[in-house]
Write a protein that binds this DNA or RNA. Sequence first.
DNA 1: AAGACATATTCTTGTCAGGGAATATAGAAC
DNA 2: GTTCTATATTCCCTGACAAGAATATGTCTT
Lengths: 112, 112
Amino acid sequence: MMATLRALAEPSRFQIVELLRDGPRPVGDMAQRLRLRQPQVSKHLRVLGDAGLVEFRVDAQRRIYALRPAPLQELEVWLERYRSLWEDNFQRLDTLLEELKTGEKKRRGLRR
Amino acid sequence: MMATLRALAEPSRFQIVELLRDGPRPVGDMAQRLRLRQPQVSKHLRVLGDAGLVEFRVDAQRRIYALRPAPLQELEVWLERYRSLWEDNFQRLDTLLEELKTGEKKRRGLRR
DNA sequence: AAGACATATTCTTGTCAGGGAATATAGAAC
DNA sequence: GTTCTATATTCCCTGACAAGAATATGTCTT
């Protein structure tokens, strides 16, 4: 969890994760799209890998990196413990006002 | 979003957030419970505040800090874009196996 | 008023993480 | 084999950041 947060809390790595959301990619491709140098991308991928956020498969001299869902799933589980903060109605008005003030994102289906 | 992640990606601040999940608390109380020195707690609270994660109300010489749900809500919204990674059935078995194993190892076969 | 209490801020210092450049490794193609 | 391509790793340097200690700000109590 901590490792996941630390890994994501860096702009370049965050971008890499966003890229990989659309599917696996080789290192060079990411470097090009994100306008980063190859070594830095490799280094970031190592951090992401250590955090369990990515894995790769070898294709000749290429390494095709892909997202591993598990850590993100954990993050979501953790976040759910906070869900009552904005879902329970004792907070509703507060949140609503906040949204009006700053133009927040949508919120979906009310469960539980 | 980035600010939120950066703020959470620090153990003490993460703990503070966890504490505040149960309700608002004054600074001294948090310092005591987390065995941190008061100045460090104040500093962390400033970072959390700048990220919009906490707010406070003044009570005499105390400042009662509370969680602000908005940033966490944003995080959840962001995470939902990744939800298909583990909710779609083409990934179900994969993820399940991973959980059963509980050990971290490489694995193959992502589609798309 | 003075002192006690709660919190914030400053300053310093040590550590660590990320970028750049160069180099190493590994496989493919010739 | 040698060369080209793709990626990883090393080394150095700098900037950021968190802890510690001391101090400042602010408010209550007497």
